[in-house]
Design a binder for these strands. Structure first.
Length: 317
DNA sequence: GAACCGGTAACACGGCGGAT
DNA sequence: ATCCGCCGTGTTACCGGTTC
């Protein structure tokens, strides 16, 4: 289980927050900007949280692929094959965004003031990672791109005092090396596509489209429930039951939901002080879902260096 | 019904050319 | 010279349509 508290003090030293009042009680916007001087020890301060977030998947993949996690396993080579450090850079960037989504959810106050908990991360369901690791373990030369996780990137829960789930937070996390205006627009609205027949250009996909059409109880909830059942059946008995009620096909019991959009990356060169990527004064007009919306933007400088540093540190002595 | 083709989806980076 | 917008690259899986 994921049991590491977010490193609050490290976060407040690292990031400056620009918080704005919720709009209509249902839209929250939080801008987090990296402060000029990054603490040289920051990687170490974030490391326990990242290890906690990836622990389930690491154990799971090691078992599936047939690699021992034991330190004196006598096969030093195995260390280089271990999740998540062995993944290609692009995959690590994506993972970083997803872990950060959990980190900010647990650490900052979001729209509605709910208290969120992230019992476990869903990284083991990153099906293509498993295949990548399997191939890599048998052919060290093997290098290729890793296909992204399908479905929602991140699920968090709000539990009542009996431990039942009363609200979900469903997150979509994106990393981009350069958060230019065009890049953000593409991210939110989708890529330009040209219709071959009439030559018309339209945008397709994007975060807005994805989040607007997402089903109320996404597949990630089933995955989360399976994980809880396997890892901590007794500790989360009430949560498992309440998720069952929401997941049945006939007459499901609805669970309130908050959507989270998490954009993390390097700021564009000509970024103004406190400048946000998305509007915060009003609910973005592209958003049509009835659920509450929380946007978090994390603006870094040379974020790749930090990501590489963190993932190099994980599970190293 | 099986086998094939092309297109789309998801993830992110790299490079080109034009604008500042 | 630098920044920015746009398009192409690589990967797996699944969709619909066409052909045998």
């Amino acid at each position: 289980m994921h049991d590491c508290r977010p490193p609050s003090r490290a976060l407040s030293r690292w990031l400056q927050n620009f918080e704005s009042d919720p709009v209509d009680g249902r839209y929250g916007h939080l801008l987090l900007v990296e402060k000029p001087a990054r603490d040289s020890d920051l990687g170490n301060q974030l490391r326990p949280y990242f290890e906690s977030a990836h622990r389930d998947a690491r154990e799971f993949f090691a078992g599936e692929i047939g690699i021992s996690l034991h330190p004196d396993a006598d096969e030093d080579d195995d260390a280089s094959l271990l999740y998540p450090g062995c993944l290609p850079d692009t995959a690590k960037r994506g993972l970083f965004g997803e872990v950060m989504a959990g980190l900010v959810t647990e650490n900052y106050e979001f729209v509605g003031g709910h208290e969120w908990s992230v019992p476990i991360f869903l990284f083991r369901y990153h099906a293509d990672v498993e295949k990548y690791l399997f191939d890599l373990a048998r052919d060290a030369e093997r290098e290729r791109a890793v296909f992204g996780r399908l479905g929602s990137d991140f699920i968090g829960l709000k539990l009542d005092d009996r431990g039942a789930v009363v609200r979900l937070i469903v997150g979509e996390a994106k990393w981009r090396g350069e958060l230019s205006d065009a890049e953000v627009e593409t991210l939110m609205l989708g890529k330009w596509k040209t219709n071959k027949r009439n030559g018309q250009r339209t945008r397709r996909g994007g975060i807005w489209a994805e989040i607007n059409r997402d089903i109320d109880v996404p597949h990630g909830v089933r995955q989360l429930q399976r994980l809880l059942r396997e890892r901590d059946r007794d500790g989360h008995a009430a949560a498992i039951v309440s998720m069952d009620k929401a997941l049945v096909l006939r007459n499901p019991v609805p669970i309130a939901r908050t959507n989270l959009i998490m954009i993390v990356g390097n700021g564009k060169a000509k970024r103004g002080e406190g400048e946000a990527l998305l509007t915060w004064e009003t609910i973005p007009e592209e958003y049509t879902s009835p659920h509450d919306l929380q946007v978090v933007e994390v603006i870094l400088k040379d974020g790749e260096d930090l990501i590489d540093e963190i993932y190099d540190l994980l599970w190293k002595v």
